[in-house]
Design a protein around this nucleic acid. Sequence first.
DNA 1: TCTGAAAACTCGTGAGT
DNA 2: ACTCACGAGTTTTCAGA
Lengths: 151, 151
Amino acid sequence: MTPGGLEPLDQAIVQELAADGRRSFTDLAERVGLSVSAVHQRVRRLEQRGVILGYTARLDGEQIGLPLTALISLTPNDPAAPDDYPQRIQHIKEIESCYSVAGDESYILLVRVQTPLALEDLLRRIREAAKVSTRTTVVLSTPFEGRSPTF
Amino acid sequence: MTPGGLEPLDQAIVQELAADGRRSFTDLAERVGLSVSAVHQRVRRLEQRGVILGYTARLDGEQIGLPLTALISLTPNDPAAPDDYPQRIQHIKEIESCYSVAGDESYILLVRVQTPLALEDLLRRIREAAKVSTRTTVVLSTPFEGRSPTF
DNA sequence: TCTGAAAACTCGTGAGT
DNA sequence: ACTCACGAGTTTTCAGA
């Protein structure tokens, strides 16, 4: 169980911030048993090393007007074309995540839009920008999402 | 363009917090053009209404010792069984997100583990807990993930 | 890399418009 | 619903071990 390249103290800090990204240094210091300034230094170092990539508010898609979530699989039209798909589609704001995958398809995208019509338009833009075929799986509901990892 | 059930001011606040979940109220106040306490009130209300579900640090899977990401599709073994799959698998910590989907499969899971062996073990636990068949797509790389939505 | 202390800044609340 | 004001708490920096 555990060691994954990260010191126990850093691991504890990172886990606390994954669970609550707005936890104060004072609070973190108590939980991990260090002084406030030691925690401060460690968090800054974790940010600089790229262990912590950033902080975000998790939002309810329904309530922010993006009720339709979908997973889109991408298959290149021309298998010989250079593999620069992420670059070609990164400007498309509706794409939240992009995974390069092993399997029948090359990429899987997670997208959020307002309406079915917006999804149709999005698919057209993705196909044109990346010269790919798409296969779309609509998300009906999200039992849970973005839970913080345990390690 | 825009109105999705959220006031422009709330929209601006929420967008700032999606981009940087640790932004201070002072900072937010300047950006949206309100007093600090007005922003404070609005953020509290957004949290209570469930528009903001929480805050998290985004972490680098490689660096925290969970380098292997996978997408797992679930198909019920017994199509007549009650649909309580999320409940049956929510205790499994490696599962970060769970989507109920339209299509050939019933659910798609996003998971993170240390090693191929840990993935094998995880699949066994999922199949046993939920009485499902699984189809696994291994993530080779993540060009981008968890980008904040624009709305 | 840690601690402790001081200064600057931010939070959180309450009163008032 | 917003602003202003104030005390409490937090962040940030620095010297020293």
